[in-house]
């Protein structure tokens, strides 16, 4: 490969074409605006926005976060401005950029998921939906929808009824057999699967003999969970034929490549954004360098090349 030839980075996730496989993970990049002074949003594969519910959500009382070994716990509780305010106030800003916008959606009932999906379906500038059936920090919906294959499939079907947009279902790792859930949502019509959301965890304040988080439990993210995420992506890739998006503790290009080699068509960068606001761009540039150094012309030549 000549020095002036750049590796081809575009990937196709069903109907959804991305200029590169690097997205932001929901809840770690706000509505995009928060990072626009750090990152040229046009360079991203996609922006997955903070989870949207039908009505604005207050979120959980503080403290909401706690640092852990190679990661952190959070129990934000899906604080968000609601789908209507997102469409009115945040989408116009995102439309200025040449970047795929993926709206992460959440509901407490099937009907709520459907209403949010319907509103976003007719909103200009949304390229796909990511259905959150995996938030561990809310009392209703969230995780409880994602831990039962029948219910996860039903949410998927209900959302599909309301939208022509590609539907990605985001899975929770807090289950016995994630591949079983993946297969169920694929059968129900999911266009893609993203995994993993956070792992439920705890941290104890030994001075107060009390939890560090007001919510007691929280979701663990960061490099600590990467080996688990890799194992689960591998299990799911073997089981389904729809595109899989790998998430979990990706801090740099090497981490992202591990997921791509296993068979993920794309990746999401989450907690890394918090300590390095340029993490997404660093991963994109790092993957390009890897491909260039290895004389690989197209990112797709690396995807699903795992030898076991």
């Amino acid at each position: 490969m000549k020095a002036n030839e750049f590796p081809q980075m575009a990937v196709q996730l069903g109907k959804l074409k991305l200029k590169n496989p690097v997205m932001t993970a929901s809840g770690t990049f706000g509505y995009g605006e928060e990072y626009a002074e750090y990152v040229d949003l046009n360079r991203l594969g996609a922006i997955v926005v903070k989870g949207l519910s039908l009505k604005p959500r207050l979120g959980n009382p503080p403290p909401r976060i706690m640092e852990t070994a190679s990661g952190m716990l959070n129990a934000v509780g899906l604080q968000n401005i609601g789908v209507d305010a997102f469409i009115a106030e945040k989408l116009p800003y995102l439309r200025k950029y040449d970047v795929a916008v993926i709206a992460n959606i959440y509901g407490e009932t099937y009907a709520e998921y459907q209403k949010v999906a319907r509103k976003l379906n007719s909103a200009k500038g949304v390229h796909a939906l990511e259905v959150n059936v995996s938030c561990p920090n809310v009392k209703k919906g969230g995780l409880s929808f994602g831990s039962d294959p029948k219910i996860a499939a039903e949410v998927t079907r209900k959302v599909k009824e309301e939208t022509d947009l590609p539907v990605i279902v985001k899975l929770t790792p807090n289950v016995t057999d994630i591949a079983l859930i993946a297969a169920a949502v694929e059968k129900a019509g999911a266009d893609a699967i993203s995994l993993i959301n956070t792992l439920t965890g705890m941290s104890v304040d030994i001075k107060k003999r009390a939890p560090h988080l007001k919510n007691i439990t929280g979701g663990l993210s960061g490099p600590a969970i990467k080996p688990i995420a890799l194992r689960m992506v591998w299990q799911v890739v073997k089981r389904v034929s729809i595109p899989v998006i790998g998430i979990g503790g990706i801090m740099n290009a090497e981490d992202a490549l591990e997921f791509l080699i296993l068979g993920a068509k794309a990746v999401q960068i989450g907690t890394a954004n918090f300590i390095n606001p340029h993490a997404t761009l660093d991963v994109i540039d790092g993957i390009k360098n890897y491909l260039f150094d290895n004389q690989i012309k197209d990112i797709n030549e690396i995807i699903c090349t795992f030898k076991s």
Partner: peptide, 17 residues
């Protein structure tokens, strides 16, 4: 003061009522 993760308003971790 509050514990923070991102410092930029994205993570919603440092909430005050």
């Amino acid at each position: 003061e509050e514990r923070m993760a991102c410092g930029t308003g994205a993570c919603m971790g440092c909430a005050v009522a």
